[in-house]
Design a protein around this nucleic acid. Structure first.
Lengths: 217, 217, 217, 217
DNA sequence: AATGAATGAGCCTTCATTCAT
DNA sequence: GATGAATGAAGGCTCATTCAT
């Protein structure tokens, strides 16, 4: 009565769930996601999630790992930035990369979205994962900012400055509903993101330079 | 069997609910809050919420209004800043006020927390309230930034700059769990907040000045 | 702070509830009526019902008594029909009276509606009331039918015939939603009811005559 | 702790619910039925109703369809009456069939009961079902009555007459509690129903003949 | 006499999970 | 490996009633 699943179906139930789960978790966050919606989108039975992943919590962990590329394959050592470029240019590239990662120019980068959710309601059991994802980029930016601030800058100052830069970027994701109200013309297409990146870069370079001058004095 | 209600109990069921609701909503957000938890914390019957507020949704609205001080009394025209001060000083005061409002120096100011929740999953029915709370401060900061950037600055530039400033501040609330991982020494007591405010102010003034110079050229 | 109720308000809270209760019970039946709706329509507090009547059940009993005129005053010996008229005419008048009572020519006669509700889901504690209301009319119609059928008719035959007549009438209340679907042109204004009465009378007289002939043979 | 389900249990949860639902809905009507009572009687979990039927409303629809035999199979073109018989005989058979359908000779035919409930508080979403069930029989009776009244009868007259006939029958269901009070000896076993059918047939034929005579004149 | 406030029981529904095949 | 069926625990809400004034 029931056809034997083909290899492409059979071996991929797990992947189908994972793929659907990424979409749904990214869209609704952990708490507001139901296992049923995921399974429906994946076209599989509700019980499959528990069978393959052992529950909603574990599925979420798997989704995070998957999305962060920690599923086994890629290296995730921060953005791909030419380290021989001058630090100003590196900062520009970092900001640009972060914004694009976070703001969905087309479809991809669920990464930023999951990150955003985790920031607001951390699932707790995921601290390590979060750290693994974010810390490399944090260190990367610390290096760039350190170079720009000069040797007189101590670690707390560097970190505060890094947070200032990251905060500007992240705000366009977290605060999007509010920004939409306050500045309806703000777009998020690739061109608009480029302009955003340029603005944040200029603003941040100005800020960094000012801090650097204060250190010297 | 039932004790005569004391004055502090009496007439205050509504307030007890409201107070408990603030705590719980702030802690868990709207979706993950149960009216049962609220009522248990308030020591009242579950049905009391519906009696006094007409349902979970309305209770949330009431909590927002309460927390925003829109419950009828106070003026909400932005932070209380001396408008005769030089704009640099006004900026410093604004940032300081925003950080304190957002970061809980002692107990109070659930305001920022609710704001944060709303930003991440807006309840929709509250757009107006959110706007009423945020817009005045937004306008206030726009004026300050406008003065600092000079007459050559157009509105989009001003707004982008405002978002850069606000983003830095807000990040310390939204990104707190992450920041705690990356910079464990970061504290949030009044002194630490003062230092944070000082840093963000310097950074931002540097950024603004850089932008202003670019305009002139 | 609160004005002293005027006599017309004061002495009439009970009546206001009763009046509102009649409307609401008639509209929704016992089970689907809420005490709140009644009190809202009456403009009184919910607790008033329990105070004045001791609960929903008792209020319903009171409503029935009120509606049936058993509240102390009127005589309820069946419809007001000229007993000197020929039985054919008496039958015509009875049917006409019943239809008007049951079908709301303008506003009044909640009586029929309550009767209808009771027939479908009897509240149990009200058997006697129902009987008191219905039996007199039943006896009245039995007499008329007995006269028409002639002395050869036994009681069961008379009763069956009475039920046949009453059933035709009642159907226009109970079956109204269905009738509306099957015969959308059917109206219920006084003229239409007159015609209905005429039809049922003719039909029933025909039926009775046929039965009478069978008895004779 | 949990017994292996027997074949009669297994695969039949849906049927058990349906069966219990028929009983309970028939007994209490839609509004006063709780899915808890149904599930308790069926010996299943409350959630099973939602799983199998998707909610109370849909369960009710399913019950109606089930009870009306519309569950997919049978033809429902009215009662099974020999159309070659003389119309008087057809009328007799129709009335007999309707009474048996409505009055439960032994257990079955919840049909009439559900119909009765629908007439008094229609669930609205069921208009079509109601129509599908009732209309065919209505048309069937219209044809019979039309033949008896002769070619001079217009549609409104036919329908009124049909309602007169149906009303007599239905009264024995709707008005049963009242009838029981007024005529305690009335029984509802098959024999009694046969006699009832005979009486209503004679009465109605008498009525129809009278109407037919009036048309001719 | 009358009321606003408060209560506890109960209802329908949803959800993550487990069971039996 | 995979699934349809079934479960129990909440969750938000409504209601008739009672409490204290």
């Amino acid at each position: 009565m029931k056809m034997k699943n083909t290899a492409s179906d059979n071996l991929k139930t797990r992947e189908k769930i994972l793929s659907a789960a990424v979409d749904v978790f990214v869209k609704h966050g952990f708490n507001n996601t139901t296992i049923r919606e995921i399974c429906q989108e994946a076209g599989v039975n509700v019980a499959a999630v528990n069978y393959h992943f052992g529950g909603k919590d574990n599925l979420y962990v798997a989704v995070c790992k998957h999305v962060l590329g920690l599923s086994g394959n890629v290296e995730l050592r921060g953005f791909d930035i030419d380290q021989t470029a001058p630090p100003e240019e590196q900062l520009r590239l970092f900001i640009r990369s972060l914004l694009f990662a976070i703001l969905d120019h087309k479809k991809p980068s669920h990464e930023g979205r999951i990150m955003a959710w985790e920031m607001v309601h951390p699932t707790g059991s995921l601290d390590t994962i979060i750290k693994d994802m974010i810390r490399p980029r944090h260190e990367q930016l610390c290096a760039i900012v350190g170079a720009l601030l000069g040797p007189g800058a101590d670690v707390p100052l560097i970190k505060s400055t890094v947070f200032s830069i990251v905060g500007q970027c992240i705000h366009y994701r977290h605060g999007r509903p509010v920004i939409t109200q306050l500045h309806p013309k703000q777009k998020y297409d690739p061109d608009a993101i480029e302009k955003l990146a340029e603005h944040i870069t200029r603003f941040s370079l100005g800020g960094i330079k000012a801090l650097a001058r204060e250190i010297e004095e």
